[in-house]
Design a protein around this nucleic acid. Sequence first.
DNA 1: ATACCGATGGACT
DNA 2: GTCCATCGGTATA
Length: 190
Amino acid sequence: MGAPVGAIARSLLGARLVSSIDGEQVEGVIVETEAYGGIEDPASHAATRSGRTRRNAVMFERAGLAYVYRIYGMHWCLNVVTGREGVAQAVLVRGIEPLSGEQVVRRRRRGRRPLSAGPGRVCQALGITGVLDGHDLGSPPLVLSPGWQVPDGLVEVSGRVGVRTAGDWPARFYVRGSPGVSRGGDAVRL
DNA sequence: ATACCGATGGACT
DNA sequence: GTCCATCGGTATA
């Protein structure tokens, strides 16, 4: 086993995402993440039973790529691939707080609230769709960069949202009190 | 405030 | 056919 799946998810809190998708600039801070492992994590798309498929193929590639998939037939979800090549591991981005481009986000979200809490809403807010599956997050139109270092005192941990098998793994991390966080829950301070 | 439910498509048994 | 790493509307309190 490599690094605990949660460690990188924790460290991505406070990181910055800059989207210039469709020529519109939106910048946000990540405030909620969820870790997914590979074969050892029954909740992962890359769990043993499935192995590598067309959908999850990017999870097995190098760290720093975007794994984007469709959920419930209508929403997109953004993951940051975090394992080395051949080792499936990814972190789901579940919530951001817009730093700039909030007008664009409001338009994309059609005025609905919450603005960008929840994985589907994050993708709407940033304009992310499946065409970004496999995209290198070091280059436009979607760039991930280090940002704010979130102190441990502001971080809470809980089980994963909407997951049955192994849903209780403490693999969800979020910034307490942020409007970009999708829900509370059985959280514990870090 | 919580609860239920429909939309809608692809991966998988 | 069944199960989703979901959201947004409607209903109920």
